[in-house]
Amino acid sequence: MTIATRLNTQIASPLVEDFVALRIKVGWQSIDKASAQRSLDNSLFHVAIYDQDVLVGMGRVVGDGVMYFYVQDIAVDPDYQGFGIGDRIMTAIEGYLSNAAISGATIGLLAVKGKETFYARYGYFNRPNATLGHGMCKFV
Rank of each mutant, 00 (worst) to 15 (best):
E17Y: 04
M1S: 14
Q52E: 15
F83G: 03
Y119M: 06
K138N: 02
S13H: 01
T106W: 07
F118S: 04
F69V: 10
D79C: 02
I11P: 03
G133M: 04
V16D: 07
N126V: 10
P14E: 10
F83I: 00
F139A: 09
N129K: 12
E116G: 07
R88T: 02
Q10A: 10
E17G: 15
Q29M: 11
M58V: 03
Q10T: 07
D79K: 12
K113Y: 08
M1R: 08
A34C: 03
A4V: 13
T9W: 00
V61L: 08
A4D: 06
R121G: 04
I24D: 10
A12C: 02
I107F: 06
I102K: 14
G82M: 09
A48T: 12
A111N: 10
K115D: 04
V76S: 08
Q10P: 00
N8W: 00
W28G: 03
R23C: 04
G59T: 10
D53I: 00
F118W: 06
M67W: 14
T5V: 02
A21H: 07
D32C: 14
K33T: 15
F83W: 11
A36I: 07
T9A: 13
G65N: 05
A120C: 03
V61E: 06
F139R: 12
G59H: 13
Q29I: 10
T131V: 14
V47E: 07
D77V: 03
G108I: 06
S39R: 09
D64F: 11
A101Q: 11
A130P: 01
L110E: 10
G63C: 08
M136D: 01
Y80M: 05
R88K: 15
N99W: 01
D53P: 00
V140S: 05
D53M: 01
T9P: 01
F125K: 13
R127Y: 09
Y68V: 05
D73A: 04
E116S: 06
E17D: 15
A4N: 09
D32Y: 03
A4T: 14
K113D: 14
L7Q: 07
Q52F: 06
V66P: 00
L40W: 05
G108P: 02
Y96F: 15
T117N: 11
V71M: 09
Q29F: 05
L97N: 09
A36W: 08
M1P: 11
R121M: 02
G114D: 05
A12E: 14
L44P: 06
A130R: 12
A21T: 13
G114V: 04
K33C: 11
Y124M: 10
R127Q: 15
I102L: 11
D64L: 12
L15V: 06
A12F: 03
I93G: 01
Y124F: 15
I31H: 01
V112N: 10
S43H: 09
N8C: 12
A105Q: 08
V54S: 13
A92W: 02
C137V: 07
L44T: 05
F45M: 13
D73E: 11
T91F: 00
V61C: 10
V66L: 07
